[in-house]
Design a protein around this nucleic acid. Structure first.
Lengths: 313, 313
DNA sequence: AAGCGCGATGCAGGTCCCGGCACACTTCGA
DNA sequence: TCGAAGTGTGCCGGGACCTGCATCGCGCTT
């Protein structure tokens, strides 16, 4: 399986013709046909089959198509990325939990970029604690901001506390709660599916069964549902201050628990430059301040959609 | 540039040693060293350099590393995907706007899966209208749900209206608005950055300058900021019913405009099976009902983080 | 029924990749 | 200062990949 073969296959699938693909690639038609034949034999699937006038993808070909497209594109991207690297800013990859991504990551990344103007180009991605634990030692990310990851220092990771916060449980003012917390309806953001997050630990501490948990696409939506009386929602105290002030939500009688965000990197002697600078920045008063204030939106030109990180290999 | 070479490079970068990588791969050490040399020459970058005891990545190597990891992983994923395709459910890829992704996509995909149990496996991704226009004809997606895309039928795309809705502009009850709408502060979700979305068209119609727009990571967060008195926010009437009922937000005097979601696929004779079935499902009363009701969260086991689609090549 | 377009395949040549072996070179530690 | 470990590089053989030319088979068109 070669990149050339995959490229030929992608083009055939897109254009629906071997000959057309050959013309685009600037090679003879048999060359493309052979590449296709090699792929077919290697993967044990016809991939594309003649269908009267045109070619049709098999189900296997359909699945391969998306993956192959990415591989081909990544190939050229790789060349471009390496050539661009000369004199370009260093890239820093920050991993965060979904809650941090929603409120804090964007202003934090922007402030870091301003602090060391032009030196770094930071991207942030959403990941669970388990994924962070894999991505960091494999150098697929530089810094993780979220729950404590490295309780065991032998793995080469170092987690340091960055910010302590109060975590409260809120509900609509008129909501009447019956029974133990384990019988309430809990409305959480995606970090609730991560057993290592503060939300996950909270749910486990109160023995909330899966049936009593509803996951919302983001923290604000979970709070909106809570304001509608659908149940209770955990929240970082400083981030929900607005809703409490306006009276949409109130704290329940559950006592607040304390959480902490940690910055995790490789051990100090193995850190990349970017990891070092970003780690230090997270300890500055400016970063502290940003972490306490909920996001206020960004201008369109500076908006970047979040990246959800998946583990490759 | 070969997949074998990239695999060798990734392993060297991860393990920090050519010899260790060779041991893992089960080949001799010079073989790995050669692969590395070939990559270095091809890309014109040292990629990794000896640093006393261990190897250090150059900035170019750092960038290549992430991309190469993906490529290697995608390689094995491709083989697995094709082999799994025999007898497995067909995969259907649905593109949606960020607003639809937030409230509607998950229950819609789930209902579709229940309707044709086991026949299809649907994934949804967030994309702008411009991206949809590229992804659909290239068969990188099967169905798009969002603004009208195919005004010109010669491209081989067919957009059909699915659901009409009222779009209102809301604000905090006590907010006093001065001047023309173009001077207000507008709080929008990521679809506001897409000029072809209804939100984008609305902003253009009122000539709102970039400085007066704040983009929030999701629609609910934009509404929460509006409830806090930070400005006005556009909203699909049926999705914001809860906040209006609770009195957190009220409609402004701007008259409601009408929007419509369209389902776009390839022309009928070129549609895949999945596209055909999903397109028909979108016209059923069940789908209509789901599109009018805001999301209520899902159990943890059924939660899937959103995929943000980027265009490959 | 004949013609035509298109894809698949046998044949042959060139190129490049991949593997191992041997050996020069650098760096670290004793 | 000298060994040890590890990396980079000739050298070479085997094999896989890429290419073009010619040819065959298939289905659609006329």
């Amino acid at each position: 399986m070669t990149l050339t073969q995959l490229g030929a296959f992608v083009l055939v699938a897109r254009l629906g013709s071997v000959r057309a693909a050959a013309d685009v690639l600037g090679v003879s038609e048999p060359a493309v046909s052979r590449a296709l034949a090699a792929l077919r034999q290697h993967l044990g699937d016809q991939l594309v089959i003649r269908n009267g006038n045109g070619m049709e993808l098999t189900e296997g070909g359909n699945r391969l198509f998306g993956i192959a497209s990415q591989m081909v594109a990544l190939g050229s991207e790789a060349e471009a990325a390496v050539r661009m690297a000369h004199g370009a800013p260093q890239s820093v990859r920050l991993l965060v939990t979904s809650t941090i991504a929603e409120f804090i990551a964007t202003p934090l990344v922007e402030a870091f970029g301003r602090r060391w103007k032009g030196m770094f180009e930071t991207t942030s991605g959403v990941a669970s604690a388990a994924e962070m634990r894999v991505l960091l030692p494999n150098r697929l990310a530089d810094v993780a901001l979220g729950p404590e990851i490295a309780t065991d220092p032998t793995l080469g990771l170092a987690s340091e506390p960055v910010l302590r916060y109060r975590m409260v449980v809120v509900a609509a003012p008129r909501l009447r709660l019956h029974g133990t917390p384990g019988r309430w309806q809990w409305l959480v953001d995606p970090s609730g599916t991560d057993p290592d997050s503060d939300t996950g630990r909270l749910l486990r501490a109160y023995r909330v069964p899966e049936a009593r948990i509803r996951v919302f696409p983001n923290q604000t939506a979970a709070w909106a549902a809570a304001a509608d009386g659908a149940g209770v929602a955990p929240a970082v105290a400083t981030l929900i201050a607005g809703q409490l002030r306006r009276g949409e939500l109130v704290e329940t009688e559950l006592r607040a628990i304390h959480g902490c965000w940690y910055a995790t990197t490789l051990a100090p002697d193995r850190r990349s430059d970017g990891a070092r600078y970003l780690r230090n920045f997270l300890g500055t008063p400016e970063a502290m301040h940003l972490m306490c204030a909920p996001g206020t939106g960004v201008p369109p030109s500076r908006f970047r959609p979040p990246v959800y990180v998946t583990i490759w290999s």
